[in-house]
């Protein structure tokens, strides 16, 4: 705005002007007074400035004395659906803003704008299979790209690293089988999120938060690796990263062997085609939380590999995994159940 009205302390309004302006503010002007005020404002720019300044001050006074209420509510939506035997979970976050009218107290709610469409996880093998096939076709038909440069930032990070993203109803059993972010490509009923204290009658607790997962024989978790900006980690020569976490046996007795592997799922449906470039084993021996850490790496020389799983109807041909999405898989290869919590991943040089 040009020609701002500053506080002109030298201007002294007449008592008539002061009286009329305040009557206008308080909605008490009579017809002849309205005419007088209008004539004053019309003939004198300083009078109009005074009136505008007085109205502005009145607005400040009103604003200062009447409460202003803006209510911000963050809503998280988790929707579970099941169709043709395949479960899906979708999540979204929205912010709702309510602006209250200080005069009569009624609030208007501004329509929510979805802000985070966080990971629509479809476990439908059909959909994922089609996506994987499309990705494979894209990779096979595109021109070769120069090797990706190492990334310093953003950082690699697990989603739902401590399995706290979904709440377990206090009145329900202390388990749920939906494990957000950890059932990429496949799901199994042999892993569940567990409210550790409730499940163990208070004898044990989670390493972080309230929940941990419990993995039975043959159970597994898989997660596509992503950076904290949401971009996927792509396979490249010489890539190294470290997986850490905490594990604990469910009961005393035999130790448990778990394997942690890198995976590239080239297709999931109709036929499975999967490459496993690296794998490490860990032994869990204690019924107390035990920290583990493994380093996984991809070969420095070539990423042309033979799939370790090839479905019916597919040739077990060598394939180049360069630039394909990399996932991590944690498998229980023993007959002993164990808890897992507080997972982390970091890229190493």
């Amino acid at each position: 705005m040009s020609d701002r009205i500053s506080n002109n302390v030298n201007y002294q309004p007449s008592s008539e002007l002061r009286d009329l302006v305040d009557k206008m503010i308080d909605d008490r002007l009579l017809a002849d007074e309205r005419d007088s005020l209008e004539a004053l404002l019309e003939s004198n720019s300083e009078a109009l400035n005074y009136c505008a300044e007085r109205v502005h001050f009145h607005a400040e006074l009103e604003e200062s004395m009447a409460p202003v209420r803006v209510e911000l509510t963050q809503k998280r939506h988790v929707v579970f659906e099941k169709k043709r035997g395949f479960a899906s979970v979708s999540r979204a976050m929205s912010n709702v803003v309510k602006i209250e009218n200080s005069k009569h107290g009624k609030a208007v709610e501004l329509p929510p704008k979805p802000t985070t469409q966080a990971n629509f996880l479809s476990y439908s093998l059909v959909a994922l299979g089609l996506m994987a096939v499309a990705a494979l076709i894209f990779q096979l038909t595109r021109s070769p790209e120069p090797e990706l440069a190492p990334r310093l930032a953003p950082k690699l990070a697990f989603n739902n690293a401590s399995f706290e993203d979904l709440d377990i109803n206090e009145k329900s059993p202390p388990y749920i089988f939906t494990i957000l972010e950890w059932q990429d490509y496949f799901q199994t009923s042999k892993v569940k999120v567990c409210d550790v204290e409730r499940a163990t009658d208070g004898k044990r607790s989670a390493k972080e938060g309230r929940y941990a997962v419990i993995i039975e024989e043959g159970g597994f978790l898989t997660q596509r690796l992503t950076y904290d900006d949401g971009t996927s980690l792509k396979a490249r020569k010489g890539l190294k990263f470290r997986i850490s976490g905490w594990a604990m046996l469910e009961s005393t007795g035999k130790p448990c062997s778990l394997s942690i592997a890198t995976r590239v799922v080239a297709s999931a449906y109709p036929s499975m085609r999967q490459v496993q470039p690296s794998v490490e084993k860990i032994t869990v021996e204690s019924t107390e939380w035990q920290k583990f850490s493994v380093d996984l790496s991809l070969p420095k020389d070539s990423l042309v590999m033979r799939p370790n799983v090839t479905g019916a109807g597919l040739e077990n041909d060598l394939m180049d995994i360069t630039g394909l999405n990399l996932a991590i898989s944690i498998d229980n290869k023993s007959s002993v159940k164990f808890f897992l919590d507080a997972m982390s991943v970091e890229e190493i040089k």
Binding site: N49, E53, H56
Partner: peptide, 23 residues
Amino acid sequence: KHVQLSPAMMEKLADRTLQVEPD
């Protein structure tokens, strides 16, 4: 109507309030 300023003066006053220096 008798308590209101004329439409032209209303506009003028409203516009002038926007020129008040916010402090």
